[in-house]
């Protein structure tokens, strides 16, 4: 059993907000030990997109996740071992909806896909270059049915822009906003963009129970 691997910044453990893909709902809890989870009815928050990190995550029931973060988007950390999956994490902030600063992470393919789309929107937005942070809302969920059954994919929209909340910790050198694409954007295709296909899941060994605290996809 492991305690959470310290993040690259050495930050303290944060209260999390989780997306339950089976239910299509968001949950968080109040700060403090043994606080109960409650459903987030309005998932609108400031997303720390410059602080978005990718890496390897291992969720085990009853303990904080183990994480090994990538040094950068373009350089993946080595796979720490079995049961680790690729995922992302970033901070979200909303006093009203989340009771403050929360950490959001996921290794679920459909959630990663949704975050990829949000990332592309954020990169393309002119406000990003001004240093503003996006206010993002989960405007709905889309059912995705496959061999794992039906799971729900969140749909994110940028509904506003704001100054960087002081709650977002200083990561030393803040990750710079990406340079806007210098040349002409890719012409929109007549067909809808293709969906990223998550890797196929290997059949789990019969003796290994599904971890209860892990994302349900």
């Amino acid at each position: 059993m492991g305690f959470m691997t310290p993040s690259a910044t050495g930050a303290d453990f944060k209260t999390y907000v989780a997306f339950n893909a089976k239910a299509g709902r968001w949950y968080t809890k109040d700060d403090g030990k043994d606080e109960p989870l409650f459903e987030v009815t309005d998932m609108t928050a400031v997303f720390d997109m410059p602080g978005l990190q990718t890496g390897w995550f291992k969720f085990t029931s009853g303990v904080a996740p183990e994480k090994v973060m990538d040094p950068s988007f373009s350089a993946a950390a080595p796979n720490p071992g079995q049961d680790f999956k690729r995922g992302f994490q970033l901070d979200l902030y909303s006093e009203k909806n989340l009771l403050g600063l929360r950490e959001f992470s996921s290794t679920a393919g459909i959630v990663i896909e949704a975050m990829n789309q949000l990332y592309d929107l954020w990169v393309a937005a002119p406000e990003t270059a001004t240093g503003k942070y996006p206010v993002v809302r989960c405007v709905g969920v889309t059912p995705v049915t496959n061999k794992h059954g039906t799971n729900y994919q969140p749909k994110f929209e940028i509904v506003g822009w704001t100054d960087r909340p002081s709650a977002f910790e200083d990561m030393g050198q803040p990750r710079a906003a990406p340079t806007p694409v210098a040349h002409a954007p890719v012409a929109p295709a007549a067909a809808a963009p293709a969906a990223h296909m998550p890797p196929p899941v290997a059949p789990a060994p019969a003796s290994a129970p599904a971890p209860a605290g892990a994302p349900l996809f």
């Binding site: 990829n116 293709a194 969906a195 990223h196 296909m197």
Partner: peptide
Amino acid sequence: TPQKMGVYR
């Protein structure tokens, strides 16, 4: 790409 990846069916 050097930054990201998309796997499409």
